Simulated assay, not measured.
Amino acid sequence: MKLGIIRCMQTEDFCPGTADFQAIREKTGVFSQVTEEIILIGFINCGGCPAKKSVLRARELIRRGADTIAFASCIQKGTPIGYPCPFAKKMKDLIISDLPDNIRFLDNTH
């Protein structure tokens, strides 16, 4: 799996992605059923509210080799600040509708 992760721009000032990287390394959370090697292609934020840049960022991750796009848990679960993105559903729908058929989408890294 060649993975690109999109995270919340609002949390990046205080969250270095440690739990995301641990979930990849230990194959927990959304990665628990992944049997292949996971190669991280990129870790990027959504572009800020209202996430208009997220589709372009997903496209760029794919252009750079990602075959899977994942939302970091901060987007839909609101971790670690307890505030889920109010644009998460719309952002997810837009990205999924734009993805080529051969690209996987995963929710909540950990």
Rank of each mutant, 00 (worst) to 15 (best):
D107V: 01
G29H: 08
I103Y: 03
L61Y: 03
P86G: 06
G29M: 07
A66K: 02
I95N: 00
F31P: 04
T35L: 10
V30L: 03
C46Q: 01
P80Q: 06
Q33K: 14
G17C: 11
A88N: 04
R59A: 01
G42F: 04
A23F: 09
H110I: 08
R63M: 00
Q33T: 14
A70P: 09
S73T: 14
P50E: 13
E36C: 07
P86D: 08
Q76G: 11
P100T: 02
G65P: 09
D107Y: 12
S54D: 01
V55F: 00
D20P: 04
I96E: 02
P16E: 13
D67C: 09
P80Y: 05
E36Q: 15
N45R: 05
F43L: 08
L106G: 06
C74R: 02
T35W: 01
I95R: 00
L99D: 01
C8G: 13
G29N: 10
G65N: 09
F21H: 13
T79V: 14
E60Y: 05
A88P: 04
R57G: 03
K53Q: 15
M91W: 05
L106A: 03
A19K: 14
G82E: 07
L3R: 08
I39L: 11
Q22M: 14
L3I: 12
Q22D: 11
I62A: 01
I96W: 03
I39V: 15
I41P: 06
S32L: 09
P84V: 08
L106D: 07
T18S: 15
R7H: 13
Q33P: 05
L56Y: 06
G82D: 09
K52R: 13
V55H: 00
F71Y: 14
F105Q: 00
C46G: 06
P100W: 04
E37N: 13
A58V: 02
R59H: 02
T79S: 09
K2Y: 10
